[in-house]
Nucleic acid binder design. Structure first.
Length: 196
DNA sequence: GGTAGGATTACCT
DNA sequence: GGTAATCCTACCC
């Protein structure tokens, strides 16, 4: 299967990219343990005019500065002090856009995911942005890592058509008008989706 | 089967 | 010191 090329990430429309990421396959290799999982839920965050985005209104801190780099790298940050959330940085340098990966469906290396998740409920192994990163071995030290080569984290293209549901994003209640943007995408009927 | 509420801590103001 | 792109449990139908 082909790895998504740099051109995929460098495009200007993060909302479209987030939608297209549904059905692609997130892959990791740490300590020679390979894990693969189909992306079934994503959200778009746009720096320029999106109040819910960490980079809204040009906001730049040590945490989010990788969002301003060229697309095709990971943006990982800690949420609620404990959860490591994995995002895909998109667009050209200085356009701080990213797609949050919210849920995946395990395909390969499930035993490694179970081990990393410790005594997790098997049925919720990767059904959420915090727990999927844990299962796949992704943490903040991987923020800024390239997704173009297959050394640590990469994404493989989707070969089959997906029936996608479009709705509002989760957990951004204080983002005023952005609360209503239909920037969350998930595969209809997929049981790994974090929230209907 | 569904949800309200508490846990928990890095990060920013 | 307040907030947060979450998760899980307990408790209620």
């Amino acid at each position: 299967m082909q790895t998504l090329p740099l051109e995929f990430y460098m495009r200007d429309d993060v909302v479209q990219i987030a939608k297209e990421l549904v059905g692609t396959v997130l892959c990791t290799r740490f300590d020679s343990k390979i894990c693969k999982a189909r992306i079934v839920e994503t959200e778009a965050y746009r720096g320029e005019d999106d109040r819910a985005c960490h980079a809204y209104n040009g906001r730049c801190t040590p945490r989010n500065r990788v969002m301003y780099k060229e697309g095709g790298i990971a943006y990982v940050y800690i949420c609620y002090g404990v959860f490591h959330l994995f995002n895909v940085v998109t667009n050209v340098k200085d356009k701080a856009d990213a797609a949050l990966i919210r849920a995946v469906e395990p395909i390969e290396g499930e035993e490694h995911m179970l081990y990393r998740r410790d005594k997790a409920d098997v049925h919720r192994l990767t059904s959420g942005p915090g727990i999927l990163s844990r299962a796949m071995g992704i943490n903040v030290s991987h923020s800024g890592t390239s997704l173009i080569d297959t050394s640590m984290i990469w994404i493989e293209e989707n070969s089959t058509p997906i029936d996608i549901h479009t709705t509002t994003r989760v957990g951004i209640d204080s983002a005023k008008e952005a609360v209503h943007y239909p920037w969350r995408f998930y595969e209809k009927g997929n049981r790994w989706v974090s929230k209907k």
